[in-house]
């Protein structure tokens, strides 16, 4: 029983990280039809920005405070990177979806290489605040606290994004754009500007995901973003390509399946079972994956 509880909580924590990584991707894809391979680079940028910030601050400062400042810096860096990539690289290739993918592929290869060149390819340890290192006892199970932190951040983000989509004018334009972009343009609304904002938002969320994933892993390394990105892709596909709630459900499902399979079947089966889940969804409900509603 306590084992199961532990698996469930760690699975949900992992799912929360997947959701953080996938939500920006799903938002960008849903509105603009851009498969953003550079999303992994956004995460890496966030993780390294946070690590550099934490390193630069005096070590007498509490780790928790340093992490908080680092997260803020990472959010700013992520937003900037997202906006710059959209304006400089994506916008000129408007409506050329394949070329957009190609450009982000090139960007992801070049940026991983650049990070390796500057920081080296070895992972660096990341300081973790003491409250996130502890465990709490619930029903006899010792549950790591950091998973609850990831879960809380993910739920806050989900709530925030849903509220943004539902109650603000920007959200209205995004939802309308996902539904029918041409019509929104015809009504005289500047969709181009919305694209930039969404890319900036996606970059910020990706950076946050990068920071939390480096906390989860305990290290930063150049290839971290890319490995998380593949799970984010799987989550986006299972979640219905562009639907935010679908992405959230899929993220938690994938996290749970992975942890359960790793524990009850054999270590390493979890990663495979995720791909199997994807294949099953494709075989049983391919139609649900074609359309997108924010």
């Amino acid at each position: 029983m306590s084992d199961l509880l532990l698996i469930l909580v760690t699975g949900l924590g992992l799912g929360a990280l997947y959701f953080l990584a996938a939500s920006g991707l799903s938002l960008i894809y849903g509105l603009m039809g851009v498969l953003n391979f550079a999303h992994g680079s956004f995460m890496t940028a966030g993780a390294y920005a946070a690590w550099v910030t934490m390193d630069a601050m005096p070590s007498s400062t509490a780790v928790g405070l340093r992490l908080l400042v680092a997260v803020l810096v990472a959010l700013v860096v992520g937003t900037l990177v997202g906006v710059v990539v959209e304006v400089v690289l994506i916008r000129p290739l408007y409506r050329h979806h394949i070329q957009q993918v190609l450009v982000t592929v090139g960007l992801s290869l070049a940026s991983v290489a650049a990070v390796q060149g500057v920081f080296g390819s070895d992972p660096y340890p990341v300081a973790k605040p003491s409250f996130m290192r502890g465990t709490v006892d619930v029903l006899g199970a010792r549950l790591p606290v950091d998973r609850f932190v990831y879960l809380a951040v993910a739920l806050l983000l989900l709530g925030g994004l849903l509220a943004l989509l539902r109650y603000t004018r920007l959200g209205l334009v995004i939802r309308a754009g996902v539904e029918n972009r041409t019509m929104v343009e015809a009504l005289g609304i500047d969709v181009q500007r919305t694209f930039t904002i969404v890319f900036g938002l996606g970059g910020a969320v990706a950076a946050l995901a990068g920071v939390l994933f480096s906390q989860y892993a305990g290290t930063v390394s150049p290839l971290q973003g890319g490995s998380l990105l593949i799970y984010a892709f799987i989550v986006v596909v299972i979640g219905g390509m562009g639907s935010l709630t679908g992405t959230a459900v899929a993220a938690f499902a994938v996290g749970l399946v992975q942890q359960l399979a790793n524990y009850y079947a054999a270590s390493g089966i979890g990663d495979l079972s995720v791909v199997l889940l994807l294949a099953l969804v494709l075989l049983l409900r391919p139609s649900s994956l074609q359309g997108a509603h924010a």
Partner: peptide, 17 residues
């Protein structure tokens, strides 16, 4: 069974497996 960008992601997932 899926087309376009979804196909790209799915093939990536299989290669990753």
């Amino acid at each position: 069974r899926v087309g376009g960008i979804a196909f790209a992601m799915v093939t990536l997932a299989f290669a990753q497996a």
